[in-house]
Structures are given as C-alpha cells and as structure tokens.
Design a protein around this nucleic acid. Structure first.
Lengths: 101, 101
DNA sequence: TAGTCATTTTCCTATTTAGCTAAATAAGAA
DNA sequence: TTCTTATTTAGCTAAATAGGAAAATGACTA
C-alpha cells in the first residue's frame, strides 16, 4: 500500500503508466517520450515493478513492460472504499490499528 | 494531482485520514494517537490541506480538521478511470501530452 | 495585564529520492 | 570470438522530506 502510493507520487511515473495503458512498451520506447536519460527511466520502471503495477517480460534483448491493471485499480479502490462509505454515511472507516504507533 | 499522491505517499498521513474519516478532530486529539511530536503532526496536516483532502476550521483556540471526502474520491477516481476502461478494452487511455517533455 | 494552553513556524540534522555519467550485463549479429 | 545494441547497476551530487526542539502566534482565563 505504501509502495503503490510512493510509486504514484511522481509525475514521470504516472506518465509512464499512461503510455503503458495504451500498449506494452520496451524501455527504449518509453524513454523516447522523455527527455530523461534511459537509466533514470529504468529506475522508475523498477519502482513501478516493486509496487506491482507493471510487469516485465524478456523479449530477446528487449525488456517489455506492461501494465498490471487490476493491481493498480484494486489497491486504490481498497483504499477509497471506506472513504466513499463514510461520504454516504453508511459505515465506519475501515479498520486500522489505533493507539500508539 | 501531484499534490494528492504526494500527500497520500506517507503512512502517518494515511492514518490521519483514517481517523478523520470517523470524525473531525483537533490537532491535539490526532497527535494523541501518534508517538510523533505535535509540530510534526501539524506539518502533515498542512500537507493534506495543501492537497485539498482536509479542511481546517478555527474553533476557539483549537483547530478542527475534517475530511474533504469528495476531493479524495474524485481525484483518485479521475486517475483510475482510464485504467479501468483500458482493463475492459473499451477506450484508449486518457489524453495526456505525448512527445518531448 | 500576565499566564496558560493549542497550534504553527523556524531552524537544524538525518535520510531518501531523482537525476546524471560511466561501467557492467546480456542478447544478437557478423 | 568480436562488435553492437538494450538495459541495468554503481557511484555521485543536488534537492526534497521527515523528524525534533525551541521560539512565535493566538486565544482564553484570572
């Protein structure tokens, strides 16, 4: 949960997700859309992969990245649900440990 | 959009939102649930306010913080929608400038 | 007015993050 | 094998962030 929000808290990484939402792409193809150097893109992709929102597949000497849509939507919906419920006055907020950290 | 994801990319801040989802609270009441010192809580609240997900109301010498639910849900749904659509194969990803940054 | 309580601001330090270039890996082509 | 291309890793610097303590602000009370 923390990883997914950290992953999304970056304009370049959200842009990468936009591109991948259209179609899977190699690192180089993604990098062509940015002014950033490829190693930087590579690390952004690693962060997104760590968060589970993209996956990588070796395709010869290329690395193909694609979106893990249900991971993205699922995690965010899970986070949102309690707040939606509260907005409608239906239930209490989702359970979370209270008290000292 | 950037601000909301940055605001959510913090465990303590998400916990604060959980508390506020139950009921509005003063800074001191919120701080009682953390080991963190109050000034730190105060700054986390400022970040959440900057992102528009909480609002503050002066109540005498207390400051009452409460959730801006529709802001939270609206922004995240807007972000998610294109990915949901893509998952169902309905439309292309949401428009965003492509090409060089 | 002086004193107290709640909150914010300032100043400081430690940690994390983003970006770069250069070097290392890995696969394909000659 | 050697050369080339695609990607990742290492090593670095600059900037952002989180936290604390102490000072400043603002409102209530005596």
């Amino acid at each position: 949960m923390d990883k997914i929000f950290k992953a999304l808290a970056s304009e370049p990484r959200r842009r990468i997700l936009d591109y991948l939402a259209v179609e899977p792409m190699t690192v180089g193809e993604i990098a062509d859309n940015f002014e950033m150097a490829m190693p930087s893109i590579s690390r952004h992709l690693a962060v997104l992969k760590e968060a589970g929102v993209v996956r990588e597949q070796k395709r010869g000497q290329y690395m193909l990245y694609s979106l893990v849509t249900n991971r993205l939507t699922g995690q965010l919906y899970d986070f949102l649900a309690p707040f939606c419920a509260q907005a409608r006055g239906i239930v209490e907020a989702r359970p979370r440990r209270r008290g000292r950290d």
